[in-house]
Design a protein around this nucleic acid. Structure first.
Lengths: 249, 249
DNA sequence: CGTCAGTTTGACTGGAATCAAAACCTGTGG
DNA sequence: CCACAGGTTTTGATTCCAGTCAAACTGACG
């Protein structure tokens, strides 16, 4: 679904986000940082509910989310959807396609999304630098850790807690959580939350009302209003270590 | 929980398993293969239900499962356990600790297990070879893909299907699935299956009886008897692509 | 032969799904 | 500026899958 220019030169704002993401987990020296920022790529708009990457395809480019929210997802025989990961600006959701052949999961835009499509060839080239290869590997490992936490969330927590946990994760990944109360943009529907938490839309709606009544958090239109971060964290059984943010080794 | 010798020299049988695992997904040339086989390590026995790696600790060694079944697991506030991955002989469950600091998940022996403990330092040394580093990265990515599939399994499938899916995954990873009917060893309890599928033990028991009545598969003592592999796969909605076995790029 | 872990059964409860319809927005075009 | 259409959100009624609790059964092992 290309939609935009086909430029070759560096597109700095998007890449700066990506670099920041890598730096939150890995140390990179000056030349490595420059190599990231000099990555080529073409900006592409993807409309809401359209796929950036179709299930089962092998692509020659990686997607870097620049604006909006994207989701990795799969489905069951009877057509039920399950989101396995949310991707926010700065994430490169299919970095792992560099080393794995076919994508077994699709990547969909949950809101209008702007993507920087970076050629695999260019990524492979800079991954020849061990420091960069390691930072890619590390990001991949963090992704796996997050997926494992989702398994725990879906397997053993009940609806309210699951949803609260999801909200905590997104807040944290957006760099929130300094204050006891705050607001952030999250342009997704309750239906999407249902697909991410393995619940039905109706039940998500009711659980969100619970969270609101308990004065923990509320979802109003396209923004999340956290009213009591410490209590929300507690209610969500949320321990951010698994995100491996700021490990910076 | 050390228990055995403290040898330095290469312990070939375990490492050959590990190499085979890597080769099923990555191409490695002769010297790279030799580097793997020459890895140092000490064999350790871990008793059933004991942890190989405690939650939240940082270790200086990686575990290579040589015999038995191990599980990555976490728990919720109220003490419920959830297994996030099963690890069979040849797997190195905490390879990712090389690149991530603290383990946020524990690693437990579900059966008596023999582990080869390989120093991180030695792994880092051979990971200086790009080909090897890439194979590690690839294995890590495959792990993430498997975890994502578990999210789908727990989020959107019902008990019987979930359990069938788990059985299919293990069978496939053990290299079974050539014939329509076969048997393999799986020394774990129904309780463990419950923890892996996010169900209660009682319900696992009943669902297993279902599978048996339907002549698909049965769990007898410590072995799984698959009676009708094609039907089991269908009932499990199982598509092995996500395992990325035999991708061999 | 008693113990203990694991499996099995039964009765009951409860959380979440499903189905259906109403209310609510938000953007659109007349 | 209003009416309308579409997708969301909300509500209510009902069903069902899976959890819980408790007890009996099995089998391995000391």
């Amino acid at each position: 679904m290309p939609d935009h220019d086909d430029a070759r030169p560096a597109s700095s704002p998007a890449l700066r986000l990506f670099l920041a993401r890598l730096l939150s987990r890995s140390r990179l020296d000056g030349s490595a940082q420059k190599a990231i920022l000099d990555l080529p790529g073409t900006l592409t708009k993807v409309r809401r509910n359209e796929n950036c990457v179709e299930i089962g395809t092998r692509s020659s480019h990686a997607c870097l989310v620049t604006e909006g929210v994207a989701a990795r997802w799969g489905q069951t025989l009877d057509g039920q959807r399950q989101i396995t990961a949310l991707h926010l600006p700065g994430d490169m959701p299919d970095l792992q396609a560099l080393v794995l052949s076919g994508a077994t999961l699709g990547l969909q835009a949950l809101s209008p999304v702007v993507i920087l499509r970076v050629p695999h060839a260019a990524l492979r080239k800079i991954a020849a630098t061990p420091q960069i290869a390691e930072s890619f590997w590390r990001d991949c490992a963090a992704d796996a850790a997050i997926a494992s936490e989702w398994v725990i969330n879906l397997g053993r927590r009940k609806a309210r807690t699951r949803i609260a946990h999801l909200i905590c994760e997104v807040a944290m990944r957006l760099g929130k959580g300094e204050d006891d109360a705050f607001v952030f943009d999250l342009p997704i529907t309750q239906n999407h939350i249902a697909d991410a938490t393995g619940l039905s839309t109706v039940h998500v709606n009711r659980s969100l009302q619970d969270l609101k009544k308990a004065a923990l958090a509320e979802l109003a239109g396209h923004e999340v209003r956290v009213m009591d971060w410490p209590s929300l964290r507690a209610a969500a059984d949320f321990h951010p270590a698994y995100l491996h943010l700021g490990d910076n080794s």
